[in-house]
Design a protein around this nucleic acid. Structure first.
Length: 868
RNA sequence: GCCAAAGUGGCGGAAUUGGUAGACGCGCUGGACUCAAAAUCCAGUCCGGCUUACACCGGGUGAGGGUUCGAGUCCCUCCUUUGGUACCA
């Protein structure tokens, strides 16, 4: 008969619930630790076996830390806005609120079934108006802030207005905001502007703004997607097209440098930090203006190799570049128009697949500012409008792409860095090269290293006002709006005079209106556009008619700050109390899937930094230590999927083997971070172990085994016990749960072998087991005669002296090969070891008649005799 | 193509600092208990050779090379797998 997990698991879950065993006190005298799980999206399919993996790992750590005397914050909640619920609503007209609630209830039941020690009084739900009120509040904070590059932080727009009133924009580098410096104004100039004019100046500064840009429109989903999201949905078979649309953007680019810099200090998986680094894509170089021949226009390019400017023999603009229109000559008009139309039809993806270079000549020429020569201007789709300035100076001698293009269209190739053969291939990997053919009347780079040449040419360009050093990022601003119903409404009103008006804080939450139908509006607007009563309003302050923003926030919004709401989840007056934030933050350990490496984890860091700048949080970074749990594959080592029929349902596993067995198996499978296949046999293995544990303590009648007595343990049992306490503790700290479980198995095997059942080791062993298998542990603890939960019992200590064996096995090697093993007293001297080795029969066989060249003796470990 | 991580028995994996490779579990083989089965318990299990047996010998951590008394662990080259990225100027 297997042990009665069916009875004891619900029993203890009820006990923990009734006693609020895991409720966390703020400001207890104990040291704090904040251990966070990535909260789930409560899908209709229920929990899958991937969820318990990360959740059990953190649960074990939390239960261990409680026993070690820590005040542990370990909350859970629901990332419940999202597309699946809305798509279901489109098909059924059942309100997503209803399906969401149903799914949350399922998830909550399943999570409780696993015995996870969350503080359920801190549960959050992103779709709850009491929660999204604060998501909207943060949106307003971001909207009402601007990034002050002088002090490198976000500041309230109010302060900017005060500065404008005092000194105009004289102290601000406007080019960082509106992109040109012709609009500058004095204090008087500011005061003379009307409301609309002032509004239009400020919108260039806000961290949140509306822009008309080419976005990723997904017809199938009826919404736009952020660049970061495109891959996910195209993989699922949706098509995404580029389309210019007015969308809300967040100026995450202002934080590029800090996201990069602060990321270096985090205890995160290196690959995750690197993914973010790559996504941010910092490169140093220069912006250079190339005058267009015969006009006043200039083409601005970004290059990382300003030192090669003398080798720029032509220019290339992206087909969408605004100057193409004016540059194109009559003869080239048709070819250019054809090419541009072709390029428009091609998606980014198609552009990427084609490696063959294409392009057409515009007929226009620019002047290379270094050589003063006329160089032709082409358009080609290998230049992307979205990066840099959408235009390049082409240096075919030292850039592979330019070289290919020049070859194909017979454009001149000039060597400006010596060391390669530019007629045969671009010499681009030339950081050790020396500049040549690079001089004019004013400046010469010849003979300089690449690094020095860069420095010198940037100086010259700056002096002449034709260029300057520049750091360019691949990161773009975050496309923040979605054409959906089931998301947080954006608390903004579009007034009839064309201005935007943000709601004030006391108007929050701006609730979603109830809809009867959830189909797309038929235009590119969200279904909210059809809720006319909700959408159309009259602004009380100005009397102007207005229309509410019909876009909603992306799913990431709620998860950008949920960890903060856990600190003070019921606070109606403020987002969270500052004192509580100071006490609990930062998150000490965050565990979740690596699929969020650049999305959630970067957006959350961004919001956190804005809140930090504005003084609402006290740490620069939210998540100090991050670990990813690996994906669990199906039994056939393939990704779990319905179509392959290899999906494992945690409900079934718990029904058959119990939650403790499921938890233990998921931890025993292998290292937390690795991908690993499911194995039903493996579950049975740990289930067998739990049954052995049960039989160790409980007799056939279900009572505490009378053989458990106050008898001294054997030397072996005692040693293994102390080793187990040490190893399990150490392994939990290292999140190395598989080896901790192996050690517990060794302990149980050892006690089973022994004649006696000494209470003095068996009782504390229950505590060691309890983080992993809390239900069976509580039950055994009770059978031992205890009346309250063991959750706050202190973790057993071990005696280092007891760990040490009095005799050790020493390996005897000849030429590095093991020839014999001897058992000697611990700390036998090196001299004695050597003597013993040379006397060993088997060693002698291998050294007799040979010359001993060297003897290596490592105390308590080995002796190696080297012979020739 | 580029970047990163990883390759260990029949399988999942262990070896934390360069020092006994294969802990622990699964599976398999044999045995005990049983009318029988399940469950449980005991023994064995990297591959090969030799042996009645104890033992002993050879090989072995993706491949090849190197450093070292000694390498799964460090270095070089290559192969494979997984993840990320893809004309980013």
């Amino acid at each position: 008969m297997p042990y009665p997990f069916h009875e004891i698991e619900p029993k203890w879950q009820t006990y923990w619930d009734d006693h609020k065993t895991f409720r966390t006190e703020d400001y207890s005298g104990k040291p704090k630790v904040f251990i966070l799980d990535m909260y789930p999206y409560p899908s209709g399919a229920g929990l899958h076996v991937g969820h318990p993996e990360g959740y059990t790992a953190t649960d074990i750590l939390c239960r261990y830390k409680r026993m070690k005397g820590f005040n542990v914050l370990h909350p859970i909640g629901w990332d419940a806005f999202g597309l699946p619920a809305e798509r279901f609503a489109m098909q059924t007209n059942i309100h997503p609120r209803i399906t969401t609630e149903r799914n949350i209830n399922t998830f909550r039941r399943q999570i409780k079934m696993l015995g996870l020690s969350y503080d359920w009084d801190r549960e959050v739900d992103t779709t709850d108006p009491d929660y999204y009120k604060w998501t909207q509040w943060i949106f307003l904070k971001i909207y009402n802030s601007w990034y002050d590059y002088r002090v490198n932080k976000a500041r309230p727009v109010d302060e900017l207005v005060k500065e404008f009133e005092a000194v105009g924009c004289s102290k601000i580098d406007c080019s960082l905001y509106c992109g040109d410096d012709h609009c500058c104004f004095t204090a008087d100039g500011w005061k003379q502007m009307n409301r609309i004019e002032q509004h239009n100046v400020l919108k260039n500064f806000r961290l949140c703004y509306i822009a008309e840009i080419p976005v990723n429109w997904c017809e199938g989903l009826g919404t736009v997607l952020a660049n970061e999201e495109v891959a996910e949905w195209t993989e699922k078979g949706y098509t995404v097209e580029r389309r210019p649309m007015k969308q809300w953007m967040m100026r995450i680019t202002a934080y590029a440098e800090r996201l990069l810099e602060d990321g270096k200090e985090l205890d995160w998986p290196a690959s995750t930090v690197e993914q973010q680094t790559n996504w941010i894509g910092r490169s140093e170089g220069a912006e250079i203006d190339f005058p267009v021949s015969g006009t006043d226009a200039k083409i601005r390019v970004f290059t990382t190799r300003p030192d090669t400017v003398f080798g720029a023999t032509y220019m290339v603009l992206a087909p969408e570049h605004p100057l193409v229109e004016t540059l194109t000559t009559a003869e080239q008009r048709k070819a250019v128009d054809d090419y541009r139309n072709q390029a428009k039809l091609k998606s980014e993806l198609e552009r990427g697949i084609e490696t063959d270079k294409t392009g057409v000549f515009t007929g226009g020429y620019a002047v290379n500012p270094a050589t003063k020569q006329n160089i032709p201007i082409w358009i080609a789709d290998y230049v992307l409008m979205g990066y840099g300035t959408g235009a390049i100076m082409a240096v075919p001698g030292h850039d592979e792409r330019d070289w290919e293009f020049a070859r194909k269209f017979s454009l001149p190739i000039v060597e400006v860095v010596a060391g390669g053969n530019v007629q045969e291939a671009a010499f681009s990997n030339n950081e050790n090269g020396v500049a040549v053919n690079s001089s004019n009347d004013e400046v010469s780079l010849n003979g300089l290293s690449v690094a020095d040449a860069k420095k010198k040419i940037i100086e010259w360009l700056s002096e002449k006002g034709i260029g300057k050093g520049k750091v360019q990022f691949k990161l773009r601003d975050w496309l923040f709006s979605r054409q959906r119903y089931w998301g947080e409404p954006i608390p903004i009103i579009h007034l009839e005079d064309g201005t935007l008006k943000a709601l004030s804080e006391n108007e929050l939450p701006l609730r979603l209106p109830d809809l009867q139908k959830f189909q797309p509006s038929g235009t590119t607007e969200s279904p909210l556009a059809l809720a006319t009563d909700w959408v159309n309003i009259v602004d009380k302050e100005t009397g102007l008619k207005g229309r509410r923003e019909t876009n909603t926030m992306p799913q990431w919004a709620g998860s950008c700050w949920y960890y903060l709401r856990y600190l003070d989840p019921k606070n109606d007056n403020e987002i969270f109390s500052k004192e509580k934030e100071k006490y609990w933050m930062p998150v000490d350990l965050y565990v979740g899937g690596s699929e969020h490496a650049v999305l959630h984890l970067m957006y959350a860091r961004f919001w956190h930094k804005v809140l930090y700048d504005l003084g609402y949080v006290s740490t620069k970074e939210p998540f100090m230590k991050l670990r990813h749990q690996g994906i669990i594959l199906g039994e056939n080592s393939k990704k779990m999927s319905k179509s392959l029929g290899n999906v494992v349902n945690p409900d079934d596993v718990v029904k058959e083997y119990g939650a403790d067995a499921l938890r233990m198996f998921e931890m025993f499978m292998g290292p937390l971070e690795e991908m690993k296949p499911w194995s039903t046999r493996g579950v049975e293995g740990v289930f067998r172990f739990l049954n052995r544990v049960w039989r160790l303590y409980v007799d056939d009648a279900g009572n505490l085994d009378p053989d458990i007595k106050d008898v001294p343990p054997s030397a072996d049992v005692e040693r293994v016990y102390h080793a187990t306490v040490k190893k399990v503790g150490d392994d939990i700290e290292r999140l190395s749960f598989n080896t901790a479980i192996a050690q517990m198995m060794i302990f149980v095997n050892e006690v089973m072998k022994s004649e006696t059942k000494p209470r003095q080791v068996l009782e504390p062993f229950i505590k060691v087991l309890s983080p992993f298998a809390p239900h069976i542990a509580e039950e055994l603890w009770q059978k031992m005669g205890h009346t309250v939960t063991l959750a706050y019992e202190s973790w057993p200590s071990f005696d280092p002296a007891k760990l040490e064996e009095t005799t050790v096995e020493v390996v005897l090697q000849v030429n590095g090969k093991v020839r014999s093993k001897i058992s000697v007293a611990k700390d036998t001297s090196e001299h004695d070891l050597e003597t013993l080795t040379l006397a060993d029969e088997n060693v002698r066989r291998h050294i007799d008649g040979k010359k001993i060249a060297k003897k290596i003796v490592v105390k308590n470990k080995l002796v190696n005799i080297v012979v020739k």
